[in-house]
């Protein structure tokens, strides 16, 4: 299959994207029909036989084509659009699973909320959800305006400093759904990706339990490199001394799908590359490059982080 086909917007994976895809197809058909009508009228006007031209060349065409026709089409579309809008947007209800995603320059801070709205598990750059259940995402921003968009699961909603927005997502099948920041947020906005990972209900519970646990004590040499290089000033690894808050929580970084906010696959090699040259990969991002680390240190560090499953 051609990569990128079908386009994610036309390939919905949940009930908040599905109706919108239907809307999209209705609109494309409408557009094609109207364009055909205009082109036929224009063709007749330009090249048609005199008799046809006379029928088209009067104020009646303006009334019929310019007023009556659009009014009928648009009235139908308006009512249809309003009903779909009402259907796919609904205020959050009690008892729904909630995840808070905070946009930061240029990554996503993720926190799972309990019933009282308190943050429980911290994560970054990916949201794990159970399939078949709507999940409410609380959208906030720590700095500038961002916008969270996972096309196969639904439309986008902005993250605006000083405000809290909501959106719902739901995936009907397990899988990884890619998304990206849609609101220009300066610098490497182009490289601010995101994934949603949908698990079957049982797998999700297992993931949650694992994620809630702190990191196991590690004897790997990379753990020493981590603390010696000052990584803990910006990053937290629960269960260790590292408790920095500026960057993503790394307690289970080895289990993530991606690195650098949705831009690199996650393995030891990319991890080492990211640490050594994060500014070359994603210019302007807040993580400094560490060219001072030796090859061996890098390998150790990457191995340690990769072990944090």
């Amino acid at each position: 299959m051609l990569s990128g086909w079908p386009p994610p917007v036309l390939d919905p994976a949940g009930p908040f994207a599905g109706p919108v895809t239907v809307v999209a197809w209705v609109l494309f058909v409408m557009g094609a029909v109207v364009l055909a009508v205009v082109l036929v009228a224009l063709g007749v006007a330009l090249f048609g036989p005199r008799k046809w031209k006379r029928r088209v060349g009067g104020e009646r065409l303006v009334w019929m084509g310019g007023l009556a026709f659009p009014v009928v089409v648009l009235t139908a579309l308006l009512i249809y659009g309003l009903s779909v809008t009402a259907r796919v947007s609904d205020a959050p209800r009690d008892g729904e699973m909630r995840v808070r995603v905070t946009g930061e320059m240029w990554w996503w801070r993720v926190a799972y909320l309990d019933d009282q709205g308190r943050e429980t598990v911290q994560d970054a750059n990916e949201v794990h959800i159970p399939v078949g259940r709507p999940v409410v995402i609380e959208l906030e921003s720590a700095d500038v305006i961002h916008s969270l968009w996972v096309p196969r699961l639904g439309g986008k909603t902005d993250m605006i400093p000083g405000r809290r927005n909501f959106m719902r997502i739901q995936a009907d099948a397990p899988g990884v759904y890619a998304g990206q920041c849609a609101e220009y947020c300066g610098g490497p906005h182009a490289l601010m990706g995101f994934v949603v990972v949908a698990h079957a209900e049982a797998d999700f519970a297992a993931w949650q339990a694992k994620q809630a646990a702190p990191a196991a004590p590690s004897a790997l040499p990379g753990a020493g490199v981590f603390s010696a290089s000052g990584c803990g000033a910006c990053h937290t690894i629960r269960g260790t001394e590292a408790n920095g808050l500026a960057g993503p929580d790394l307690t289970h970084v080895g289990s993530r799908q991606t690195l650098g906010a949705g831009i690199l696959p996650n393995n030891q090699g990319t991890m080492a590359g990211w640490i050594a040259d994060s500014q070359g990969i994603k210019p302007g991002n807040r993580m400094p490059s560490y060219p001072v680390l030796t090859g061996r240190e890098l390998r150790d560090l990457a191995g340690y982080l990769d072990s944090l499953k």
């Binding site: 917007v9 994207a17 109706p19 919108v20 809307v23 999209a24 609109l27 579309l77 659009g81 309003l82 779909v84 809008t85 796919v88 096309p151 639904g154 439309g155 986008k156 909603t157």
Partner: peptide
């Protein structure tokens, strides 16, 4: 102009 489509 259709709100749901615009969200995408």
């Amino acid at each position: 102009a259709m709100v749901p489509f615009d969200w995408q």
